[in-house]
Structure formats: structure tokens, C-alpha cells
Design a protein around this nucleic acid. Structure first.
Lengths: 231, 231
DNA sequence: CCTGGAGAAATAATCGATCATTTTGACTGA
DNA sequence: TCAGTCAAAATGATCGATTATTTCTCCAGG
């Protein structure tokens, strides 16, 4: 067999899952919006089954909500949940960072520096259209945050942070779609990176918590409105 | 409309999901075992779709593993992952308990006491057959552990602990199925409860970590063997 | 004896028809 | 006007046939 590098063609269900996931995280599909199976299957030019499988995965993941015999909708948002989520992020990332600083070797340091560099030089919006966010930025932004905790020594911990990050990213994007955006957080990331490689544990945690909370504060004002369309 | 309390009949997919979930957590379906869709649909007397939807949920949840075009199998286990998981449990529960002790009112205290009482008086095995574990025990055991962190103030945190608990429970049950079982942890739970209502933060955490690690230690010896059948 | 490959069998994924449930909307009588 | 009722329409869930892919089996050539 020569086909070692044969790329596994993803199933329709997997493709649709990824597309829907992106739409939800990007805030294009609004919280509470009905996810009509027939409509979606037309949109994605597929049968019903792959769409249903994708939706089942999304609701197991918490990005959609299923009510038996009543179909699926996009997971609603709320101000209390945002606070709840932010709190959890602060707590869990604190441990991850603390342990990473304690255990991380130079590979870890370099990963942090590298991902911060990539984040800094990736434009936040697409060059031509000023309002369309650069999808690369989302990736490198997450990579940076995950790099901070990557040496903590527990994949379960890393997965948990990843989940929390995604949930928070949806809130962030919903705020952006609604017109609220924060000043460039590039400097904050830079500061966090510096403190991390300098192993200034308490400082990193202080900066990181402030980073999370500042975003949450900003998003909060917008969520109240979005929340109403949720019923 | 008079039907306020109308009980939502679960869909086939949801029923099968719950049944499979229990089988996996109980260790009846072994790690790495193939989950053949036609076989399962015969077992549960249903069509293919509900089974596939159930499996999609389970793999999104991490209890099964999907490979596109190659179907599903039960999530494998490994000694490193058990260590990883135990570490995460210690860390996350520590925060949950710390915050609960700080913020919990008397309602919280009473919930802890009550769930510990229920745990104490629930027999671990069914009365007649000595070897079949009592499904009630699993429920009240989880309830007790969740009660400890229930006042932490973040549902995301509580969900995270719940996930971690379930993953650990599978390891525990796999060990039991393989013949390894630990001495009655009833006393440990009692101690933890006492320390919690006495607000002895550091002691609770010490006892809880020891509780998690003792179980992991025991399970570890068995997992190595199960691990091999995983390929 | 081993390797590779063609074809057969098994299994997974998808489709669209069908069945079940919920939602909508028009109608009725207080 | 407003519940309440019932049928129609819309939507969700399920089924089994069909299609796509992988896995198995057996045989030829080295």
C-alpha cells in the first residue's frame, strides 16, 4: 500500500458539523435561533441524516440545545452565564498557568513566545474589508492562550480550557456583530507573555484575570439585548 | 392548556444514548470495543438513525471515538490518561470546594450533610446478588461529590467537575469488573463531609485529593491490562 | 514463504419516503 | 373579547433501501 498520506475524506456529517460550529462561534447564527433541519439540509445540499448528526454533536458540546420532538436551536446566552463562564475561566486558567510556569521547560517558554509573536503580527481584520474579522486571528489568539497552560501536565485541563475559551469566544463575537469591540488587546497579550516567560506567576494571573474580565465587562452590555430574542 | 406537567416522551435516540452511556460508564462495554451500528440497532430494536445519533453524542462527549468512514468504538483508556484525569480532578475540585466553603450558606451545609447521609445508608451492592453494584449508589455517590462544590458559584465549574467525575467513574467500574475493588470508602466520605461543614478548607482538600488518588492508584494496576485490548 | 492486488463481503454513510408530534390558525360559544 | 377545540400544516424522528468506503480473502508472481 502506497497511500500512507491518504487524507481521510471527512463525512458529510463532519463537514456540516464544522461549518455549523464556526457559524455559531462566529456569532452568525444568533443565540436561540431555530435550527430547522430541512432548511439546513437544503443549505448544505445534503440529506437529513448528516445534518441531524451534526446537530447532535453540537448539542452534546453545548453549542446547540435539543428538546426532544421539538428540534434544535442555538444555545442561548445570558448575562449571568457570561459571569459564570468568566469566573470558571479565571479559576481554571489560573491553575493551568501556575502549573505551567512551575513545570514548563524552555520548549514551553519558546512556544509561548512564538504564539505571541504570531498573534501580534496577524491582522485582526481582513486587509480589504475593514469589518470582516480575520479567521486566522481567531486561531492564533486561541493558540496563544492555550500555549500558556500547555505545560500544566494534564490534557483534561487543557481540554477544559479549550471548551471555556470557545464558549467565551462566542460571546466576544456576538458583541462584535452587535457593534461593540474592544481596543486592541495586543499589548495585553504582550504583557502576559513577558510575565509568563519571566516566571512572574502572580503577575501573569493578575493580568490574565483582568484580560478575561475586561472582555466580559464589555460584552455584557450587549448580551442583555441579544438575550431577549432567545425565547 | 391544562397539560403543564406533560412528560416529554424521550426520542429513541435519547433512550439509546442513555442506555449506551450507562453501559460504557459501568464498564460493561470495554474500552476500544467496536460499536457496530447494525448490531446495536438490532439490540435496541430500532433503525440505524437513532443509534447513529446516540453514538454521535457519545463521541462528542468523549465516551466514544469516531473515525470517519470507520465507525465508532468505545473510548480507550490508558494509565497516563488516568493520571492526567486524576490530576485535573484534584485541581478543579480544590477550587470548587474552596469557593463553596467560602460562599456556601447553611443550605449548602445541609445539602452536603444530606447527600452524605444518603450515601452512607445506600448499600453498595444489590441485596441478593453480592456482586452486582447498586445503581442507586452511583447516583448518590456522585451527588455527594457534586454537593461539595455546589456553592462555588459557577455552573461551568460544576459541569466540568461532573464530566471529570464520570470519566473517573468509568475507570473505577472497569477496575471493579476486572476484580479489583477498594475497601469501603464510606468512612472517607464521612470525614470529608465533617471537615467541609466545619469549614476546614485545607483539611477537606487534603482528604479529597487523597480520596481521588487512592482510587486512581488502585485502578491503575488493572488498567494496564485492559489497555492492551484497545487496539 | 511473503507481498501485492483484484474481487467479494462487510460495514459505514447517506438519502428520501414515511410516521409521529408539535405548532398554527380558523372557528365556536360563552 | 377571549378561551377552548379541532383540523391542517409544519416540523421532527425514524425507517429501510441505496451508495460509498473499508476490510477481508484468496490467488498469482517473485
Amino acid at each position: 500500500m502506497v497511500n500512507e498520506a491518504i487524507e481521510q475524506r471527512p463525512t458529510r456529517a463532519s463537514s456540516i458539523y464544522l461549518l455549523l460550529r464556526n457559524e455559531i462561534l462566529a456569532g452568525k447564527l444568533l443565540p436561540g435561533a431555530k435550527l430547522n433541519i430541512r432548511d439546513l439540509s437544503k443549505t448544505y445540499a445534503s440529506g437529513l441524516s448528516p445534518v441531524r448528526e451534526a446537530l447532535n454533536r453540537l448539542s452534546a458540546e453545548g453549542l446547540a440545545l435539543q428538546a426532544d420532538n421539538r428540534g434544535f436551536k442555538v444555545q442561548p446566552v445570558s448575562v449571568p452565564e457570561l459571569a459564570d463562564l468568566t469566573q470558571a475561566r479565571c479559576w481554571v486558567n489560573e491553575i493551568g498557568v501556575r502549573e505551567s510556569i512551575e513545570k514548563g521547560n524552555t520548549d514551553w517558554e519558546e512556544a509561548v513566545i512564538l504564539s505571541c509573536h504570531r498573534l501580534k503580527r496577524t491582522p485582526r481584520f481582513l486587509p480589504e474589508q475593514e469589518m470582516i474579522p480575520n479567521p486566522k486571528w481567531a486561531t492564533v489568539h486561541k493558540d496563544f492562550h492555550q500555549s500558556l497552560i500547555s505545560a500544566c501536565g494534564s490534557n483534561w485541563m487543557i481540554d477544559t480550557c479549550s471548551r471555556l475559551f470557545d464558549a467565551a469566544e462566542r460571546y466576544r463575537n456576538l458583541a462584535r456583530v452587535a457593534g461593540v469591540s474592544r481596543s486592541d488587546p495586543r499589548d495585553e497579550h504582550q504583557e502576559i507573555m513577558s510575565a509568563a516567560v519571566d516566571r512572574e506567576t502572580d503577575l501573569v494571573i493578575e493580568l490574565l484575570n483582568a484580560h478575561f474580565m475586561r472582555t466580559a465587562q464589555l460584552v455584557q452590555t450587549v448580551v442583555g439585548e441579544t438575550e431577549e430574542n432567545t425565547a
